[in-house]
């Protein structure tokens, strides 16, 4: 008998520990669920953490209204099959209520508007901890993020004044009105997530696997055609064999050309690829510190 864990088992064990700490330390936690692979993995880990009991918190989806139809179908199916509680925060509602103003132009995105909807949803349901599937390897501002990330009463992140986080002693103490974002898979890489999905045989939206799709190219990025896509006259629709490495809004998520139609092939592709997964995300390219700036305002 060898008394050491493989890296995936150790990461799993750490994430389960963090999720259980959240339930033990907070009164009203929630899991932010986007329908992307990282939040699906978080959901799977939460299931393991409380087995054979049920997950003692709801799933929260901030719906921009610009999701891929496949994502929404996957979400609804999961909620129905597993008997989960789902809370949807709607960016469209925030727009209708005048809480936010929609961006204009060809590269308009609702990505930034999500923050207001997320903060409103947190306030409305009085969530004191929102778990999410963000990883430190995704983006350089996230490399400095804590597992337990404190947010003030305005939902803001103060990167220069974070609480030190030592050993596995997580400090979730807070004042009234403040809340936490918690990232159980902080220490996972894109490769770890894919290996874990393979190892655990976790179901994913079909978007992650290679398929033929109607797309158009803008600034070198392959975008899916769809009803929210604001095309320029010269942008031609063509059919290509593609898959998505990350899933955000249709308006800001680019596809990659790929023949990888199963998990083994995706892992081989991830191992060989020379660009980060967020390289297909227009929301990060707006400036050098785009992620840091959004996170300070309350983006997750």
């Amino acid at each position: 008998m060898k008394y050491n864990l493989t890296h995936l088992k150790e990461l799993e064990s750490e994430a389960i520990f963090v999720i259980r700490e959240v339930v033990a330390q907070f009164e009203n936690p929630a899991l932010l669920f986007s329908g992307g692979k990282d939040s699906i993995v978080c959901y799977h880990l939460a299931k393991k953490a409380f087995y054979p009991g049920k997950i003692p918190f709801p799933l929260v989806h901030v719906d921009t209204g610009h999701n891929f139809p496949e994502t929404i179908a996957f979400r609804d199916n999961l909620v129905k099959n597993d008997g989960l509680e789902l809370i949807v925060g709607s960016v469209q509602e925030s727009i209708d209520q005048g809480r936010v103003v929609e961006e204009k132009g060809f590269n308009a995105s609702r990505n930034g508007l999500q923050t207001t909807t997320l903060l409103d949803t947190i306030e409305k349901h009085k969530f004191d901890a929102c778990m999410g599937g963000a990883r430190r390897d995704e983006e350089k501002a996230r490399a400095k993020e804590r597992f337990f990330s404190h947010r003030d009463e305005f939902g803001q992140w103060d990167p220069k004044n974070q609480r030190p986080e030592l050993w596995n002693l997580f400090n979730g103490m807070k004042q009234m009105g403040e809340n936490f974002r918690v990232f159980p898979i902080s220490n996972w890489t894109e490769m770890d997530v894919w290996q874990y999905i393979l190892h655990e045989n976790i179901e994913l939206p079909s978007l992650y696997f290679s398929h033929e799709r109607e797309v158009f190219i803008r600034d070198g990025v392959i975008y899916s055609d769809g009803e929210f896509m604001n095309k320029k006259p010269e942008e031609q629709i063509e059919k290509r064999v593609v898959r998505f490495r990350t899933i955000g809004d249709m308006t800001c998520t680019g596809a990659v050309e790929s023949p990888a139609d199963d998990l083994e092939k995706i892992i081989e592709e991830v191992a060989a690829t020379r660009t980060t997964e967020r390289g297909t995300r227009a929301d990060d390219k707006r400036s050098e510190a785009a992620m840091e700036d959004r996170k300070k305002q309350g983006y997750f």
Partner: peptide, 12 residues
Amino acid sequence: ENTTTGYLDMEL
């Protein structure tokens, strides 16, 4: 089998 096996069994 194949190439992924090794990666699933790494130490941290």
